[in-house]
């Protein structure tokens, strides 16, 4: 395949950055999108040009490290991660525009790499159950209704890639936050901290500068794990029960 790539190049966090066009030939339809970029980088290095920086790690769709916006869509045209997107989803001769996640709480580090530590700080604020090692009762001490366990699992599938933020017209992080609140809130173990958790995480979310959700659903369409929009509704419900942040008691 022959492709025309327009890639965002930015030397460092403080640089202005610009779109640069690269023509690439000999791309296999069976290669993944990131392998196509690997090929481009091999060619750039050989010709003495700085290779394009992009993040990826597991390359099997689970670690959440990769992610670029392809022709305006987070992770590209298929509902999967960028690493699992294959070139057979494109046509010979296509022009492909490749950009980093665009959100001010995800500042660009270089080229297509962004800093997503804001997500970690949202988890730090309360995305956990306080259970010190060794303090746990027997795992069978508290049965969990299968329905609740299944919904918790569904929400826990989030890989923290940030596509929801990238796709959201408001750059909101509420699908990410909602999935954690739903995951932990569905389980009996998560009840004691449920109110405090949602308040603290929401506070951090706003502090980081993410926008507010307007219920459009672009996030769930971009989510490679298909996390449904109802986790955001759950977040809102939990937040209301916690007194809109006025009191942290549930």
């Amino acid at each position: 395949m022959k492709l025309a790539l327009k890639i965002w190049r930015q030397d460092g966090p403080a640089d202005a950055g610009q779109m640069v066009r690269y023509d690439i030939d000999g791309v296999s339809e069976d290669s993944s999108f990131l392998e196509m970029l690997d090929l481009l980088n091999e060619q750039l290095i050989t010709s003495g040009e700085d290779p394009v920086a992009f993040d990826s790690d597991c390359r099997e769709g689970i670690c959440g490290m990769c992610g670029v916006v392809i022709n305006g869509e987070a992770h590209g045209p298929e509902r999967t991660t960028t690493c699992q997107l294959h070139m057979r989803s494109f046509n010979d001769g296509d022009e492909i525009v490749i950009e980093p996640w665009r959100a001010d709480p995800f500042p660009v580090i270089k080229d297509l790499c962004v800093d997503r530590t804001s997500f970690d700080r949202i988890i730090q604020a309360g995305g956990f159950i306080s259970a010190n090692t060794g303090s746990a009762p027997d795992a069978h001490a508290t049965p969990v209704p299968k329905e609740d366990a299944d919904r918790a699992f569904m929400a826990a599938e989030c890989i923290g890639c940030g596509a929801c933020v990238a796709a959201c017209p408001n750059a909101s992080g509420m699908l990410f936050m909602g999935s954690k609140v739903t995951h932990l809130g569905e389980l009996p173990q998560g009840q004691p901290e449920r109110g405090a958790r949602v308040v603290a995480m929401t506070e951090q979310h706003d502090l980081e500068g993410f926008g507010g959700c307007t219920n459009l659903g672009e996030c769930t369409r971009a989510c490679p794990k298909g996390i449904p929009l109802n986790v955001i509704s759950q977040l809102n419900a939990d937040y209301r029960r916690a007194g809109y942040g006025g009191s942290s008691a549930d």
Partner: peptide, 11 residues
């Protein structure tokens, strides 16, 4: 036990 206490959603 530890994982269940911290909210790991096992089957």
């Amino acid at each position: 036990d530890q994982c269940v206490a911290q909210g790991v959603p096992f089957a």
